[in-house]
Design a protein around this nucleic acid. Structure first.
Length: 396
DNA sequence: TCTGGGGTCCTAGGACCC
DNA sequence: TCTGGGGTCCTAGGACCC
């Protein structure tokens, strides 16, 4: 039995590399995928760009200031999904025990391959070679005894390499890493840890567990203490079904009137309906998300007796939810999400007869949108001209 | 020139039921 | 004329991840 059977495979600047497959002129230069509008941010940066300080989640305007020659490419999510499916096919050609964390990274439990390949490291090298040869994409691989360490190891491997943490040296590997590099430690937890004088994972490992429990709560405190000591019993669990489907939009300029917000909700309802139908899902709970100019965020949700996926139903519920938020002004983001998902193949009680025709219309709309894009067909309210008058214009 | 879009998981309180 | 304890569902918010 291999002592380190867990691989964490992480594609290197995935979105950028997919763009480079389609456009060779992007190779070898600083390039980033992201939004170019007023409120755009970077989703993925090439290593050439990172040398200038460009990184994901950074406002694109900031990135361009740090690196004026940066090529900024608009994201093409459909292509990333397609390429991701091919990447995961490669993963599954090694083992069925693949747990995806996002489009471009996954845990693989390769313990079952020990009769076929000499070592877990050999598996990692083979996966990397196959991704490179078959898909033209670079990836980094971390190899360890448990998920948490494998994830840190893949970061140490980047870019384009493998990093193996033998079980006997995992304590030393963890000890000097900063606490902020722990998976699950974000700004809030880091601030609490700093108040305890913690700087490294080693500090957490040697600290009394009670101190962590009193600062972070029993669940988090114990969990963090275990991880810092290399204890992570979580198995690699093949992918579960989606629990939510959501769409949202940050507007270039804040929305100020209810009329404009309603029109935006109609567009979001269309997109959510389309996403649900393409996935063969219905939801029973709808959540409206609203972010104001000061970045405070409120949500309102409602749950129906029977599951739904139609844009008219979604729109009607969304308007009701917006009604329940007092005097929404300076709205920078609206979003709609569906939860309590059910497979659309499950029989649902039919609504009124009049709805049957609408169901058929919406099926056709979803199909056309899937093939030609969200703007290709839709309610007259959302057609061009109307949309540019209503949506996000600079106040005079 | 502040902070995208799509997710997961956790917590806490209230309703409701037995 | 006082009021337990457990379970489930729902809602709202927040932390965190890529």
């Amino acid at each position: 039995v291999w002592p380190e059977p867990i691989l964490h495979v992480d594609m290197d600047s995935f979105f950028v590399e997919v763009e480079r497959l389609a456009d060779a002129s992007l190779r070898g230069i600083p390039v980033a995928v992201g939004g170019s509008g007023r409120r755009g941010v970077i989703a993925s940066a090439s290593y050439e760009a990172r040398r200038f300080g460009v990184h994901s989640a950074q406002p694109t305007a900031t990135a361009l200031r740090m690196c004026p020659e940066l090529r900024v490419v608009a994201p093409s999510h459909d292509r990333y999904s397609e390429v991701s499916a091919a990447v995961f096919e490669v993963f599954r050609s090694y083992t069925p025990v693949v747990e995806g964390l996002s489009l471009d990274e996954a845990f693989l439990d390769v313990g079952g391959l020990r009769l076929h390949l000499p070592s877990a490291v050999a598996v990692g090298e083979s996966v990397r070679k196959k991704l490179r040869d078959d898909l033209g994409l670079p990836a980094s691989v971390g190899i360890a005894s448990v998920k948490f360490i494998a994830k840190l190891a893949s970061k140490a491997a980047k870019p384009d390499d493998v990093f193996h943490v033998p079980a006997e040296s995992q304590k030393a590997f963890l000890a000097d890493l900063g606490a902020e590099s722990m998976w699950g430690v974000g700004p809030a937890t880091l601030a609490a840890l700093e108040r305890l004088g913690v700087e490294t994972i080693g500090d957490i490992a040697t600290m009394p567990v009670e101190t962590l429990v009193s600062a972070l709560g029993p669940t988090n405190g114990r969990h963090l203490h275990d991880l810092a000591n290399g204890i992570d019993p979580r198995a690699v669990v093949p992918d579960a079904e989606a629990k939510s489907v959501s769409v949202e939009e940050t507007y270039p300029y804040d929305l100020e009137t209810r009329n404009v917000m309603d029109t935006s909700l109609l567009g979001l309802a269309q997109r959510l309906s389309s996403r649900l139908r393409v996935s063969g899902l219905r939801c029973r709970t709808l959540t409206l998300k609203l972010r104001k100019a000061d970045f405070t965020t409120v949500t309102r949700s409602t749950t129906a007796e029977t599951a739904f996926d139609g844009s008219r139903q979604i729109y009607g519920l969304a308007v009701g939810l917006l009604d329940s938020i007092a005097d929404p002004r300076a709205v920078r983001l609206l979003g709609l999400g569906g939860t309590s998902l059910e497979s659309a193949s499950e029989p649902v009680q039919r609504q009124l007869d009049a709805d049957e025709d609408w169901e058929r219309v919406e099926d056709s709309v979803a199909e056309v949108q899937a093939r030609f894009g969200a703007g290709s067909v839709g309610p007259a309210r959302l057609l061009k001209g109307r949309i540019s008058r209503n949506r996000g214009e600079e106040p005079r």
